[in-house]
Amino acid sequence: MASQLSHADIQELLGAYAIDAVDADEATLIDAHVAECPRCRGEVAEHREAATLLSFTGAAAPEDLWSRIAAGLEETPPPLRIPAQLPVRRPAKRLFAAVAAIAAAVIGVLGVQVVRQSERIDRLAAISDQRGLDQAAAAAAVTPGARTVRLQSNDGTRVVDAVVLPDGHGYLVRADLPSLGRDRTYQLWGVIGAQTISLGVLGDHPTITAFRAAGPLAALAISSEHAGGAVAPTTSPIVQGFLTTT
């Protein structure tokens, strides 16, 4: 019916669109327009806020419903949620932007405290030189203020554990990743503020690895890249995880 709509036509329909009162073909056209037009998107959001008030009754949801919802959640193994929204065109960039946005929010909300512990780090660096990376990683894991992060794949089958010290030094302490083959490498990325920064090229079969982030890390991710690595992720993360504050 509506094969084409002008901007003015669409504007007129925004109220009806916001409350699901347009035909399906119009909805499709307006969906596409709203995705590109911030002004119309804003108006739709305002209409929906107004409609929210229409729904207001003050009544609570049925008491037993939450327990059913919660039980349903347990039956579903938690998939990693960011990749659930894999964008079609430029996967890696937008995906990492989403990770960065959430990570930034985590920092903002929870106020991650970064405390300098340079003496301890120096000692750890010395241990690393003398007795090997694995002992340094083990020491890092029990350092006060160390944060652990589990990086997981979407289906939960790939797991990498990392420890991050307050000054940004970190270690991958367990990496359960399959061998990639000679022409590919795993690459570690850190989300610092709104930026995604390479923390190291890990090779095709990573084991315990040290890295250092030059800022408050909010998330870590590992992607598969061409051997030699990339300046920015070119594929979706294989595993990723957010840092906890405890």
């Binding site: 919802i69 959640l73 929204q85």
Partner: peptide
């Protein structure tokens, strides 16, 4: 009840679809 369940399970599995810049959580859920 099915709708409530679906909406909250969706929030659980894809919370990143909620964009706080585009309105309140309640209006998004509704």
């Amino acid at each position: 009840e099915e709708v409530v369940q679906e909406v909250f399970v969706r929030l659980w599995t894809t919370p990143d679809r909620f964009d706080p810049d585009r309105g309140s959580l309640r209006s998004w859920l509704l």
